[in-house]
Amino acid sequence: MLPQVLFSGLALGSIYGLVALGFALVFKATDVLNFAQGMFVVVGAFLAVTAGTQLHLPFALTLMFIVVAAALIGAAIQALLIRPLTGRSMLSIIMVTIALSIVLRALIEIIFGPQPRALTTPMPTGVFIVEGVRISQLHMLAAGVSWLCLGLFALFFRFTTFGLQMRATANGHEAALVSGINVDFVNRVAWAIGSVLAAIGGLFLAQLQLASTELEGIGLLALPAVVIGGLQSIPGAIIGGLLVGLIEQLASSYVSPRSADIFVYTLLLLVLMVRPWGLFGQRELGRV
C-alpha cells in the first residue's frame, strides 16, 4: 500500500508544485499573495472544457488555446486590478485577489452552470501494474509534463535575458527600475506565467477528476505548499508542492480523507510559528 500512496502523492504533488511555482513567481515578482490562484486552476479546467468539449478542437489546438487564453487573462488582471493598487496596503491587495476569485467563480458558474463537467481529451487513462503498484498513465503524464515545465522554466530563468530581468525584479523593485528594467512589463509577464501554470494544473486536475469550481480548494493548496517550502524560494515552492501531495495522500489513506487538509494546514501553522522563512527559504527574508 505504501508504494501506491507514495506514487500518487508524488504525482499529485507534481501538479501542486506546478501551480505553486506560478504562485511563487507572482509573489516574487510583484509581492502579491494571489488568493485567486486556486480559481486560476478552475479557469484552466474550463478553458479545456470550452476548447475540447464544446469547440471540439484537436488536442494540440486545445493546449494552445489554454496557454494563450490563460496568459491573456493573467496579464489583463495585472494591468486592470493589480497595477492600480501599487503601493497600497497589503490587505487591499490580498482582498482584491480574493474578490477576483469570487467574481471568477460566479462568472464560471453563470457561463457553464453549477454542474461539474467531464473533460474529453485523448490523454491516456489506462493503468499498468508494476510490482503490485497501480501506475495510472494519466498520473505519469501529469507528473512528466509538470517536471518538463519546471525544467523549461529553470532554463528560462538561468539562460535568457528576460529570465534574468525577472530574477532581478524579484530581488528588488527599485533596484530593477534604476537598472533600466521595465518592471511593469516584467510583472505582467509574471502574472501571465502564473496563470498559465495554474491552467495547466487545472487541465490535469480536471482530467483526473471533473471540471468544477470545487477544484479551487485543490488549487489553493499551492499556498501552504509555497509557504512550507519558503515563500521566497522557487525550488522551495516545487518541493513544498511535492510535500503537500505526499501529506495529502498519506493522511487520506492512513487517517481519513477528511483529515487530509488539516495535516497540511497544521504543518503550515507550525512552519509559520517555528520557521516562517520556510523549510528552504533564507532566514533573513522570513520576516516582513
Binding site: Q165, G172, E174, V178, G180, I181
Partner: peptide, 28 residues
C-alpha cells in the same frame, strides 16, 4: 535606455544575483 543612468543611494544592487549577472541586467 536614453542614457540617463543612476548610482542610487544605498547602492540597490541585486544581492542574490552574481556580480556578472548584476552587470548583465544593466546591459540588458
Amino acid at each position: 535606455r536614453l542614457g540617463l543612468a543612476q548610482v542610487p543611494e544605498g547602492r540597490l544592487i541585486f544581492k542574490q544575483l552574481s556580480v556578472e549577472e548584476n552587470l548583465q541586467v544593466g546591459a540588458a
